[in-house]
């Protein structure tokens, strides 16, 4: 069998003779072609976010997995940018760190010669990020992330938007990335079924639901951990609480499910 992947799919030399590189003006075929990221390596899991009447809550756990190995349990995945925005990032952690550096530079430049004629609102940061992600996917070299941007916009309204490795953007009063999109979003939507529903949701209600979601995610997402950060953004105030533990865990249900706990048939 042909062992070298480089030669897979090519005409056989014993039938067609050696392939001439000149024909296709290709660089020499004996070196590997330039490859872009095709899968993430160290990953963060879900990020969830929900609007309430006066602001937004964003949460993400602190685990960075290497495949199925729980590699780092202290990864900050929520980043504050400016004074009214939180960016929560899931997916490839090295790409996340690259994006965090972009955002830090953005903030540094924003503060140059700043005499109050311009400020960095959530929608500005989100728009910038969406261009970054779309540009990279258009180069066929995506940044392997799913991102939530939460905060307060230029009209002092709660802001929550999503952008991912494809540059796809989406906005909703409740958003979640990764497994959260399947496990947390339905719960969050109980609070905010319609675009304007968040106006009747209090911070306490939203917060309780976020904690419930993080617990459900820990129960059912094998790439999660029961320790997470929560950011609450209201007009003129960003509060980040670190290393919150999932409370009142109850694994009783696991006994009845195949694959969990006890090994019975």
């Amino acid at each position: 069998m042909e062992q070298s992947p480089i030669n897979w799919g090519r005409p056989r030399d014993d039938i067609y003779g050696h392939y001439s590189d000149a024909i296709s003006q290709a660089p020499n075929t004996h070196s590997l072609p330039k490859k872009h990221t095709q899968q993430p390596t160290v990953t963060g899991s879900s990020v969830i976010g929900i609007k309430f009447d006066k602001g937004v809550i964003v949460a993400a756990d602190t685990l960075a997995s290497y495949g199925s190995l729980a590699r780092f349990d202290n990864m900050d995945r929520l980043t504050q940018v400016g004074d009214s925005t939180i960016v929560g990032i899931g997916g490839d952690v090295s790409d996340m760190q690259y994006v965090q550096r972009l955002l830090e530079e953005l903030e540094i430049e924003e503060n140059y010669d700043n005499s109050g004629d311009q400020s960095l609102h959530s929608e500005n940061i989100f728009n910038y990020l969406s261009k970054v992600y779309y540009n990279r996917r258009s180069k066929m070299d995506p940044l392997w992330n799913a991102v939530l941007v939460g905060g307060v916009d230029s009209k002092d309204e709660p802001f929550l938007s999503h952008v991912d490795l494809l540059g796809v953007t989406f906005s909703s009063p409740a958003l979640a990335t990764g497994f959260g999109a399947y496990l947390a979003l339905p719960l969050l939507r109980q609070l905010v079924p319609y675009p304007d529903s968040y106006k009747n949701v209090t911070e306490a209600d939203a917060r309780a639901m976020v904690e419930k979601c993080m617990k459900v995610l820990f129960y059912r997402d094998a790439r999660s951990i029961d320790k997470y950060d929560v950011a609450t953004i209201t007009k003129g105030n960003v509060k980040i609480e670190k290393d919150i533990k999932c409370k009142d865990q109850n694994w009783r249900f696991a006994e009845d499910i195949r694959g969990y706990g006890r090994t019975t048939s």
Partner: peptide
Amino acid sequence: QMVYKRPLAVSRAVY
């Protein structure tokens, strides 16, 4: 407008 979805601040323009 394209990158940040906001109008260019006047001072930035002038400088």
